[in-house]
Write a protein that binds this DNA or RNA. Sequence first.
DNA 1: TACACGATTTACT
DNA 2: GTAAATCGTGTAT
Length: 202
Amino acid sequence: MTTQGHRLGPEFYTRTDTLQVGRDLLGCTLHSCIDGEHCAGLITEVEAYLGVNDRASHAFGARRTARTEIMFGPGGRAYVYLCYGIHHLFNVVTHQEGTPHAILIRGIRPVLGQETMWMRRGTKGTCRTDGPGTAAQALGIKTVHTGMVLQGPELWITNDEVNIPASHLLAGPRIGVDYAGEDAALPYRFRISPELIRSWRA
DNA sequence: TACACGATTTACT
DNA sequence: GTAAATCGTGTAT
């Protein structure tokens, strides 16, 4: 399959409504060309992290460290960090210079390079890509890719104009952020309904 | 330097 | 349902 869609540019990522950017990413295609293998998957689930005022964000309270520095730059670059010492989690940095917002990619539906994904995941014939750790691993994304501009040649996102009816765009609380107190209940997790995803099978 | 802990996944009871 | 894996990061000594 080729990339028929339009490659998202800085004007997409630097918008200031990060929740809307997150919703807009659903149905777009995330591409990676890593270790010479071109893989891609349709984005099915994301979470938004709204920076200094969001207790669930690594940038809460304007905490600025070597790890989070990339989020303080302009939107359109990758923020990848190691979670639980095992999983590489991929985020899209959004908003403008000085505002550390980001979107965590929590799930993809493979559309290109499936066999490479199976090999990276250590499976045959199929592999999970429905969690932030498994999706990043299938695409070959690791912490070394943090800071990379999302314009290729390693990482980029295309808008393939996949239609997602509003009734199939679900919002709810984010996963695994109980430590964030009342912010844990905010409806910043967006996903395409399992029913619609299932209908794409066959 | 030391230590506690996580934006998770997987295997096992 | 519960627990282990595993290490970089942030914060405190």
